[in-house]
């Protein structure tokens, strides 16, 4: 069930809720306030929402200054610009300066759809994972968004959140609690582990796991909402208990979730592994459905890869 609410509405409502209790919370936008949904935040707190126009690097610099003066700034823009356009400002003025900037990049991967290749971030998580000490996470539904966003707000240091801003199917019951860095088990199984993050990949993984179960193959499915730091114990347990791991990400296989899991495995408990994700390609224009097929982010491809992986066990 979809719950009927767009993720951006939940993003803005959660920030309003936090801001009501904490006057340090401020919002920054770069001419995408309506897209991110924070126009309702500005209505509630007109003096705590800043729209800097189409000037993302400037926005991060301002956020750093606000943070240096004790505020908790939440800047947001499309993920492509959040990661690529502001990388040095976010790296130096925010992270290297050990400040407290909570950056959000919307429209991850193929969800950028009709905006096309220039707007399609397949590398934001990878770039962000390279920043020392940064926490990087991607909620998969409204419940995990509200939970993780609140935690991120009070997590010491900067964070980067990938936000699918449209309506997505609900995964978690209301009231479910989350901990940054602790993966959620969505399905138990013993033949194979699938580790995914974000709505697009978890929904397709759920479908694939259902099909496998009907064939007598049981899957442990993890929502690795925090890609950095990834849940080391959970990954090692998957390796020990199921002996094979498939990762699924709406991102390059270089630098993202698949890389994070592979890094844990090689140093701790190598087992056969495969990564579903974008293979060193740029994005392109099309509907999300077209792009899911084009880049293999479908239950059918996950099944194909899972079957091949099982042969290697």
């Amino acid at each position: 069930m979809a719950g009927g609410k767009e993720m951006r509405a939940i993003y803005a409502e959660t920030l309003i809720k936090l801001a009501e209790k904490d006057e340090r919370i401020v919002v920054l936008e770069a001419d995408l306030m309506k897209s991110t949904g924070t126009n309702i935040f500005r209505e509630r707190f007109p003096h705590r929402a800043f729209n800097v126009g189409v000037a993302e690097a400037n926005m991060i610099g301002l956020a750093a200054g606000l943070s240096a003066s004790g505020k908790i700034p939440f800047p947001a823009t499309f993920g492509c610009f959040a990661a690529r356009r502001t990388f040095d400002q976010f790296f130096i003025s925010a992270n290297y300066a050990r400040l407290n900037v909570k950056l959000t990049g919307t429209d991850p991967g193929i969800t950028a759809a009709l905006n096309g290749g220039t707007h399609m971030p397949f590398e934001d998580t990878g770039l962000m994972r390279c920043i020392p000490g940064l926490t990087v996470f991607e909620p998969s539904d409204g419940v995990s968004l509200a939970g993780l966003l609140e935690q991120g707000a009070y997590h010491p240091g900067c964070t980067y959140m990938r936000l699918h801003r449209k309506e997505v199917p609900v995964i978690y019951p209301a009231g479910e609690t989350f901990e940054l860095g602790k993966a959620k088990v969505l399905m138990e199984g013993s033949d194979l582990s699938i580790i995914a993050c974000g709505s697009v990949c978890l929904q397709e993984s759920l479908r694939a796991a259902d099909t496998l179960r009907k064939e007598g193959i049981t899957v442990r499915l993890l929502d690795m909402h925090t890609v950095k730091p990834a849940d080391r114990e959970a990954v090692i347990a998957c390796a020990a208990d199921t002996g094979a791991i498939l990762t699924v990400e709406n991102h390059q296989v270089i630098g993202g979730l698949g890389s994070a899991v592979a890094e844990i495995l090689v140093e701790n408990r190598p087992v056969p592994m495969k990564r579903v994700g974008i293979r060193d390609e740029f994005g392109e224009v099309g509907t999300q459905e077209y792009l899911a097929e084009r880049f293999g982010l479908t239950a059918e491809n996950i099944l194909r890869q899972a079957r091949e992986l099982l042969k290697k066990k």
Binding site: L114, N115, G116, G117, T118, H119, E284, V285, G286, T287, Y290, L291, R294
Partner: peptide, 13 residues
Amino acid sequence: LNVGGTSLPSHCD
């Protein structure tokens, strides 16, 4: 225009 596989994407290429 903007149909998957097109030569005419939303932004100039």
